[in-house]
Design a protein around this nucleic acid. Structure first.
Lengths: 195, 195, 195, 195
DNA sequence: CATGAATGAGTTTTCATTCAT
DNA sequence: GATGAATGAAAACTCATTCAT
């Protein structure tokens, strides 16, 4: 009885299958059958493990968020051990985003797809807002030396928007990682100078 | 002779209907019947005026591009009459984008929708690339005083990407025009200082 | 333009197909495809002519009600011309029900099926209540010579309930019309004696 | 030996669960999983204890019949001890039906549901016929003082049909027990007078 | 005995597209 | 040109039943 049921394993397989599917087709055109085939699971089982197709997506978003949140928390923890200067802190946050998020073209593509769904789907919208608030918040607290200020908030927002834009372009024009990083860093250096 | 004004008129009505539809639902969920109803035209006629549903979208994108291209050309023409300084030129280009493109939330929403289709649809992708190349090109030539340089190209790209990101955020978080403009201008001032 | 569109014709064909289907299977087990096949119409057209499967049933009930209401109104009109005595009136109402409703085994079967759906479906329930209120009301006004009385109301209700019971039994035990009529009339004679 | 009390216990729990389920939904819409959940038994076990979903229903009907048969036998036995007059016998039978069957709205609802299935399912039909034959027979033998006569048979049939009709109406219009009983007794008194 | 994972057929519904009138 | 009827493929989802553990 103690043995972990296969359920969570299958749910992960399905999420991963959705991820791979979203690299090929928009969510709205991806059928339950296709996700099932991608996961190597009978399509009816997707309704066994999840309430609905939407439920898969929502769960997928949650896990995506948790994953990157975890990575970022770990990153922050390691950084803190080194007693960083304010500038080091900002640079570190930026480098985390550059490395793990904005230059990950697959992730950007999938994220973009989720954005598109979010425009018309309330639940997805709510989740995405939460994610972006967290993202902007993290940047803001890295940027602002002491306490929050409207300027820092706007700057954080602008920074994330910029990353967003670059991320989309990097997918769309198929930039290589080096070039994307270069574009990002040029902007980030300005931010740091301003600080 | 040869002019078929009714046909072209109908085609425009259908394009406009698609525009209004895309404000309500993603392209993939918008049915031919809905577009027809929105246009006040029998749905079967959409296949008379256009080859397919995709054809409507492609034509819509073309006309969107032409429209803003025309507006921009006119804007440029008027500007040229005043013999602007380089800085005036840049400011003018920026103000055009701010005013007509990035702060137009409806346009941004529709554009975003097209982006989403473009990720997986080759034809739409090709059209969108063309548009963004033109956009970036226009910014680049405004920015660079004499001849093109890699720096100017990158800067133009980053600028457009930033606009893109802010545009999406403005839709998503429902910014008002004033706030969006403020965010944009702060960035643009930096660009100009750098110039 | 004056020509009656095929729509109402098709809708009737579909209603009639549903009627025939309900003689073979309960509503819940009858699929849209089967109704379509029975009507000789592509199954997708059922959603063209009706909003949903439920919509077909509701429309069917409406038409059933109107049909018998019309027949009864006509029956009543003809009767009135003959200046009937109170007893004649009651007998006439009874004979109408005997002839057109309770001994029509197909109708009884279908009605029974609708009852079964009505137990759990609010909309169907509402329609059926309306029908039975009308039925009981008609019997009541025939029975009560002057004004309504609680006794007459109860008697009318009991009468309709009895018909209902006999109707179901006639289907279930496959009574012939003569026998069913005999059972009904014996009861009806008692009612009339009591009057 | 040979007794498998757990097995029979489980079978009863499943039957009782079916009973409760049929109060909520028609048989056709009730899933094996729902019955299992209602019984607190793993759904796969229902196929261990019964051959199929239909088998559960058939067994349920059998037990329903046996239960009321038993109750009625006991009722009859107690009555016999008092050496009742013919009229007392009839009244007693009627009061049994009134009390235990026709005014039990839950039972009526479930019975009605079974009727609906019986219309199209041979096996269920056969069981239900048996039950009603027994029911009518019991009424008939109570009614007829000496030997059976066609009149008594018809009267018994009509009586049961009437009860059936009132039972359905009581569920449908949600009569309270008092009112239902009143309707029944008025009719029953007529029967007794006729006797 | 018990569990829950797996299957495949079946359900209602939607839709781009075609075609006869 | 215009209309709306028709088609067939495909979508999400449900379920009785089976089976491995």
């Amino acid at each position: 009885m103690g043995r972990k049921p296969i359920k969570e394993q299958r749910r992960r397989e399905i999420r991963e299958a959705l991820y791979r599917c979203l690299l090929k087709k928009p969510y709205g055109e991806t059928s339950i059958k296709e996700i099932g085939a991608e996961a190597g699971i009978n399509y009816a089982m997707l309704h066994y493990y999840f309430k609905s197709k939407e439920d898969i997506l929502l769960n997928f978003i949650d896990h995506l968020f948790e994953k990157y949140n975890g990575l970022f928390a770990e990153h922050t923890r390691l950084l803190a051990e080194r007693n960083p200067s304010p500038e080091e802190t900002v640079r570190s946050v930026f480098s985390f985003y550059n490395e793990h998020i904005t230059t990950d073209k697959k992730l950007q593509k999938v994220f973009f797809e989720i954005w598109a769904v979010a425009l018309y789907n309330r639940k997805v919208n709510a989740k995405l807002r939460k994610i972006y608030r967290a993202l902007i918040g993290a940047v803001e607290s890295a940027i602002s030396k002491n306490g929050s200020s409207p300027q820092a908030a706007n700057l954080a927002l602008a920074t994330v928007a910029f990353h967003e834009g670059i991320g989309i372009f990097s997918v769309f024009f198929n930039f290589n990682k080096k070039y994307t990083t270069m574009l990002l860093e040029e902007f980030q250096n300005k931010i740091i100078e301003m600080g």
